[in-house]
Amino acid sequence: MAVPRFWREIPNRYNLVGARCGNCNKILFPPRSICPSCRRMGKLEPYRLKRQGKVLSYTVAHVAAEGFEDQVPYVLAIIELEDGPRLTAQITDCNPDEVKIGDEVEMVFRRMGEESQDGVIYYGFKGRLIKP
């Protein structure tokens, strides 16, 4: 990914910042320029999401996406955050066999990958199981 393309998204990727519409109160993540419900009447402001959520679905990847080859097997999940929005993220610090639908997770800041040996290092969020 080109450096500016990654850099532009840093505030959202590093802080889990989405958008809240002042008109309909809907919370959106990833952020966007127009509220899909209110369109031109919407008033979007940055909104920092709570980091708790739960697993809606998951898969154990044995064949990696480009750039993730050294991480297999890894767990990829759709997580519904407490604030409502859903996102796709890896589940980290776990045994791939222990993840279940409905598991509570917290989003944690992690290294995601790197451009090349001396290129940019990407960071972002992964989910970590909250163990009772």
Binding site: A61, A64, L76, L87, T88, I101
Partner: peptide, 25 residues
């Protein structure tokens, strides 16, 4: 979505697997 799916490690088999797992559930 390159920014929010592929960036975190999703592939097409991965996305359909997420649907499959939820359908099973």
């Amino acid at each position: 979505d390159q920014e929010w799916e592929v960036f975190v490690g999703a592939t097409f088999p991965g996305l359909y697997a997420l649907m499959a797992r939820r359908h099973m559930y």
